[in-house]
């Protein structure tokens, strides 16, 4: 990574007032921290807010694990499939059928990976890349929100 790029990043972080930032490209990893706050956030993962006791949720140390954003480490040669809609995630077309894909399976562009059901409509989610399923991040029949990571694919 060049100094010019790092300078660009620093400028952007300051502009948007980001306090903690990590970027990983292959073996290179850069982490920038501004001010006091510390938390790992390598890929923006939807934050599920835990029920908070008061109107202003202070970052109480007891509750911290629940309120922290989940961390998802993704390598350079990996691709994250996110949910394009809010709905319920299904790994198979019906409870009896086998799942569309499993970990380790090779997929190509257009391979159906799962279904996200919204308003009784089954939306098939297809792979946008060629590669191998490295991880399935959501349990069958779980609700998912827009942008929630569903699969990690190792790029071919």
């Amino acid at each position: 990574m060049e100094m010019k790029e790092i300078r660009e990043i620093l400028k952007l972080l300051e502009k948007h007032d980001i306090t903690d930032f990590t970027l990983q490209r292959g073996d290179h990893r850069i982490r920038v921290r501004r001010g006091g706050a510390v938390f790992e956030r390598e890929v923006a993962v939807p934050v599920k807010t835990a029920p908070s006791p008061g109107m202003v949720p202070p970052p109480s140390p007891v509750e911290a694990p629940a309120a922290q954003p989940e961390t998802l480490a993704v390598g350079e040669k990996q691709f994250v499939v996110t949910s394009p809609i809010v709905g319920t995630f299904y790994r198979a077309p019906s409870p009896e059928s086998p799942p569309y894909v499993d970990v380790g399976q090779t997929v190509s562009k257009g391979t159906v990976l799962c279904i996200v059901e919204a308003m009784k409509i089954m939306n098939e989610i297809e792979s946008e890349v060629n590669g191998k399923i490295s991880a399935i991040l959501v349990e069958n029949a779980q609700p998912v929100e827009y942008g929630e990571p569903l699969f990690i694919i190792d790029l071919a």
Binding site: T49, P51, S52, M55, P57, G147, E148
Partner: peptide, 12 residues
């Protein structure tokens, strides 16, 4: 999104 008991991201 912070004050509700639950919050759901629904789009861009």
């Amino acid at each position: 999104a912070r004050f509700a008991d639950e919050s759901i991201c629904i789009g861009p």
